[in-house]
Amino acid sequence: MNDHKRRKSKKRSQLSWAVGSVASGAAVLALATIALYPHQGHAEVLASAKVATHAKVAAKPAAHGASSQQPIVYKNPPRSLIPQGRQLFAEDCQTCHGPDAEGSVRAPNLQGLGAATVDFWVATGRMPLADPTEEAEIKPPRLSHEQQLAVSAYVASLAPGGPAIPSPNLGLANLSKGESLFAENCAACHTITGAGDALANNIYAPSLWAATPTEVAEAIRTGPGDMPRFGPGTFSNQEVDDIVRYVAYIQHPDDRGGLALGGVGPVAEGFVAILIGLGSLMVAGYWIGGRAQ
């Protein structure tokens, strides 16, 4: 009886010790969980956070210059930049594109393509190439923002035609219309999450997650590389603005389900299910199925 009592009291002290340690552990875990997903405290916090990020996205391009109530304002760079552009063009571009951008066997004619085309290729770092044999790939731009505008201004001054540099006003865009247009016209190559994918014959639809609103609008309007061109007969400026707005959204989508796994869908999910899900359960099974001692 006495022995029984002692055991009981010992158990009670064990219990309080356990409760204490576990409570603190659980609290740490809960805090860590919430901290990992800062935008998703609970419903209200979530809602307010979302409004805030949306407002930020919307405010950015508005401050960028387009103060009018147009969804997209097309503006050529100031003509004062043309001399600087001519200089840069001679240094970096004319080896392939020719002194007057008339093209050569190595590179296309740029005359009449407009400032948006040139700005897109230069701003995304695809041009100028370090040497003519290099592939035109997305990389940090070699020219400064002013230099990009200068080259665009110069090429645009050579011949009329082509769109000027667009500044989308995302504040006027319709996100839902953008989703619909994106799914119909863009997702077939860039995937619905904007992750990008490989097309036939060594061509890639790039990921859209790093593209600026201006670049997206330029790409839609000018159709760089293998991308089709979507002119005013296909999309109105409003529609382009809507798409750009949706692209801005999928750069920071609502991943409320947790880790997004790169946005490539069931392939990654399958690997997680098999390797992590089944894998950890097999480890647990190894523990359970093994002999004690």
Partner: peptide
């Protein structure tokens, strides 16, 4: 409408 990178579950 269609998306690229469409896969079924594993």
């Amino acid at each position: 409408k269609v998306s690229y990178a469409v896969q079924p579950d594993w």
